[in-house]
Design a protein around this nucleic acid. Structure first.
Length: 318
DNA sequence: AATTTGCCCAACCGCAGTACG
DNA sequence: TCGTACTGCGGTTGGGCAAAT
């Protein structure tokens, strides 16, 4: 655990002749103590005043951030649990990048922590997916197979709970760099159109509606989601489209049209022409075949699976 | 052993909303 | 009603560290 460093960072601004210069960068242990003691005696709030009276050469803003994200006693440290990952994923699908709102649902977790988690874990997986889909359809197929595997495990768990402990299982997913059954989830982005019948059914619809109007442009509300069944063309990328995405400064865009970097759904990316080879590809684990004309169904089924995974997993947890 | 690369996350920044005089 | 200060939020940056080369 990286704690506050007592060694001043080079980013800390100070002046040899003027000791009142504001400090920046990592907090020292002494500063932490000062802040904790002050708040213990005077309470939170009035951060600018606090910064002045406490003797800290920090801005009030910096003090507030340090307290809320690190020093506050109820701040939970350590890795996010599986349940927390699940909840983050679920809430992000609902609220988008409203980190503080998501954080409110995870006691002890800060918006900053959740934001960092999302950016690092999810982007890493997104890169993997992109890499795979760039070259072949293998990524998608592997992804689907991975899901199928997890579903089998879930079903086994349901039918014989004593034989398989999902909690203890390490279920490798092809798109997940980590070996754990983590909730990676970005792939599920296109599934929002399924929410009326999918995993997020249980979300309070009224709340969804009221929240959707607060969503900023960087996120997508359920009402804005793409209705895949209305599409007349199978999903898929052709080389030029993938190349176009590569050339984009936004970097990561997934085959579902979701861009990690700007956290938006690229509707244009969804309106793609069929480019898959007509040849059929075996999916042994799933026991079905995919042809060009089946890609739409494949996408749809995949969406359903993912929603099911979440839904079933929640049930298992309960 | 030295260097490079990539990941993680604390901290900062700018902006918007709110409270208050 | 206006101006200012405060607070909260989301996006971004950069340093530390460990793994890879």
């Amino acid at each position: 655990m990286r704690l506050a460093m007592s060694i001043p960072s080079k980013s800390i601004i100070f002046s040899s002749e003027d000791d009142s210069e504001l400090r920046r960068g990592p907090w020292s242990v002494e500063e932490d103590d000062l802040l904790v003691n002050y708040i213990a005696n005077h309470g939170e709030g009035k951060w600018n005043l606090l910064a002045i009276r406490s003797g800290l050469r920090r801005t009030g803003k910096s003090c507030r951030l340090r307290w809320l994200n690190y020093l506050k006693p109820d701040v939970k440290r350590g890795n996010l649990t599986l349940e927390e990952q699940l909840l983050i994923f679920e809430l992000h699908s609902k609220w988008g990048n409203r980190w503080s709102k998501i954080a409110q649902q995870l006691p002890g977790r800060t918006d900053n922590e959740i934001k960092n988690y999302w950016r690092t874990r999810i982007q890493k997986q997104a890169r993997y997916v992109k890499l795979e889909t760039h070259r072949t359809t293998t990524g998608f197929l592997e992804f689907v197979k991975g899901l199928q595997m997890t579903r089998c495990l879930h079903r086994a768990q349901e039918s014989s709970p004593s034989t398989i402990s999902l909690q203890d299982q390490e279920i490798p997913l092809p798109f997940d760099g980590a070996s754990h059954y983590s909730l990676f989830g970005i792939w599920t982005a296109p599934t929002t159109e399924l929410t009326s019948q999918g995993a997020f059914n249980h979300l309070n619809q009224q709340e969804q509606n009221s929240d959707s109007e607060h969503n900023n442009a960087s996120s997508i509300s359920n009402s804005e989601s793409v209705i895949i069944p209305n599409m007349t063309q199978p999903l898929g990328y052709n080389a030029s489209q993938v190349q176009a995405l590569d050339n984009s400064d936004f970097g990561i865009s997934l085959c579902d049209g979701y861009s990690i970097y700007n956290n938006a759904y690229d509707m244009n990316a969804l309106n793609l022409t069929a480019t898959m080879d007509a040849e059929k590809m075996e999916l042994p684990l799933i026991g079905c075949q995919i042809s060009e004309t089946n890609w739409l169904n494949m996408e749809f089924e995949c969406s359903t699976w993912i929603n099911d995974e979440l839904w079933q997993f929640r049930n298992i947890q309960r």
